[in-house]
Amino acid sequence: MTDFKGGILIFLEERNDKLSKISLEMVAGAFALAKEAGCLVTGVLIGNQMEEAIETALRLPINKLVICSSGSLGDFDSDKYARVMEKCYKEINPSLVLLGSTSVSVGIAANLSVRLSKGFVSDCINIETGDEGFCLIRPDATGSVHQRLVSETGESLICTVRPGTFSEDDLEYSDITPEEVFVPWEDDVSKALELIETVYEKKQYADITKARVLVSGGRGMGSAEAFGQLRILADLLGGEVACSRACIEAGWATGPMQVGQTGKTVHPELYLALGISGAIQHVTGMKDSDLIIAINKNPAAPIFDVADLGIVGNIENILPVLIKQLQERKGDV
């Protein structure tokens, strides 16, 4: 039996007093789903000193904003946050709970799922409405098959949503201020897990086989300097730099970066092949990537036979423009 009446409850992730990009994406998605299902959307903000985040959240197209602010909630703790979410859940009885597929939210989602005895689906890449309520789409372990999941019991589900599932660009800020609800927080539980220190540092990407995005250069890059530009692009896309054998031979890159028969086999979500002709020895190592985009000046280059999008053009010209456009677009994930 279709039941959307409880609506959608969203955990809005706040980082340094700003709403994270994934939170805005989820609101955009939930807004569209709520329109289809004819239900309400509630956002939950948990933390300390969230003035700017609250101000942004009050402009979001949601019906209700639940705020739980306390000095002891400043540093993320999945157990405390899950307890606040449990309180909100019991007040609202939503049909679907959305959290971001992030290191912060996955722990809250699992904790909440057990507290409420509701199903938990991680890493969803789409959500639909159907006869059996909200349908959650997620890739299986192979990554090549997608599953459409619904609640077995007709009860609500908790899911984490992969960043990029919904677009922040679809978000329509609202003139109607959502109802504000303040939830008190008393830290009355002895802590088994204590935060000692938070260190902000840049992640080192080491292994191209684990990267979600690979920016891969070939002989067509032309020089070590041009090849060096790929790092900027990879950082913008949250990925790693890889290469074809030609770059190793030219001394622009080191062995562990090589993709292909004599290098590594990779299957990232995005493989950006720049100046790579696409010899079979290279293609063997990357053809199982989810999305392949290739730029090469030779229209007959075999890389175009496996690319989802091919651009026949000059890398030297396209690369700086691509970097610039991405920099303009980039926000906090």
């Binding site: 509701k118 199903g119 938990f120 689906v121 159907g130 059996e132 349908c135 299986d140 090549s144 098959v145 997608h146 599953q147 459409r148 999941l149 619904v150 609640s151 077995e152 019991t153 009860e155 589900l157 989810d290």
Partner: peptide
Amino acid sequence: KIKVMDSFKI
């Protein structure tokens, strides 16, 4: 808690 309605291959 969850059932697979269907799956589709990419």
